[in-house]
Write a protein that binds this DNA or RNA. Sequence first.
DNA 1: TCTGGGGTCCTAGGACCC
DNA 2: TCTGGGGTCCTAGGACCC
Length: 406
Amino acid sequence: MERQILHVDVNNAFLSWTAIDRLASGETLDIRTIPAVIGGDEASRHGVVLAKSMKAKEFGVKTGEPIYQARKKCPNLQVFQGDYASYQKHSNDLYQLLLEYTDQIERFSVDECFMDMTLFLHPNEKLIDKAYEINKRVKEELGFTVNIGVANNKLLAKMASDFKKPDRVHTLYPEEIKTKMWILPISELFMVGRKSIPKLAQMGIKTIEDLASQDEKMLIKRFGKHGKLMWEYANGIDQSPVVYEPEQPKCIGNSITLPEDIYNINRLNEVLLALSEQVAFRLRKHALKANVVSVQIKTKDFISYSHQKTLASPTNITKEIYETSKELLSNLHQNRGIRLIGIQTSKLVENEQMQLSIFDNTTNTKQEKIENVVNDLKKKYGYEVITRAGEMKVKNMINIREEKKE
DNA sequence: TCTGGGGTCCTAGGACCC
DNA sequence: TCTGGGGTCCTAGGACCC
């Protein structure tokens, strides 16, 4: 039986949502109607474009590029800060509305959902009519627009939602692949990125049709598993299910671009403490422990390095993550000017409460108990309530963003 | 005032074991 | 005392996504 899949994509999500928030708070200017972007703070070197208005797009402004560069293309560009708590709320509103149609919804990101409608369409209902209905309801009830892709698998639904924007519904059924998808440049294909485009171009592959008509074995030889994936996607092949049960994260990390290059390892260690605190807090919130801690740095010349360590036993304790990351950094640092520093934890395992009570009198467990108390307070009163003295200093120093909620 | 931050998945090479 | 081969785990780096 053919699957009935929708992909719902919020148009210019961050910008649209900020536009709505501003209008709701009494502002009269709708920033969707002017050349505008949502971007980070340039003074602290977070200045990239996170979302753009259609007007800004007309000037060639691209998501991910430095605001500095975008302003050169578009001198009148207006820049607004993002509000991630608000974005999460709008995302939840959308999800609640979509739940009225199916409970098989995969939240692919804050502004994208896949919906499996296969079991939720009555015999006399058509998928595309549902798509138009959802499109209309979101606009009327939530105040922003979405593109919806209609297809028999996730890949084709996603490709379809990426066709002409905004506020559109597109189908991409097998018989339409040739006329709607194969004509596109390979750069438009999901999972063909910055590095693959020139390699494929060198092989004479420019369009998705070029890629689709290659020998699959040859692509596998050249690109490994990724070659197989690209070939299948070019041919519209994708069996992956809509994963609607929320899954535990496989890694948890925090990183920060520092407002200026730092050479002093003691200052870097202070940042590591703040990052450790956040990472450990999030691990505990998910009831997870990490087996591997890794530290990543990016030097002032934009080269990344990382070191990792497998722990003797998994942890979600700030102090352990901090001590491990400090050790990793000391092997990595070598007096380089550091632009970005981050901690990632991986090989996560469920935190079994039983295990705690068995080893009740170990130092770790005492420490865990303390941190659980801190944890509860944070959950109740918000992240900012309880912070270490050292961390406050770091916060002032590096001006960590307010956004701590998920 | 040039270049964010959160992820997932894959690969290659080395250590180690049988 | 001239050197196989398979398997697993670990590590560093990289591609890609939003």
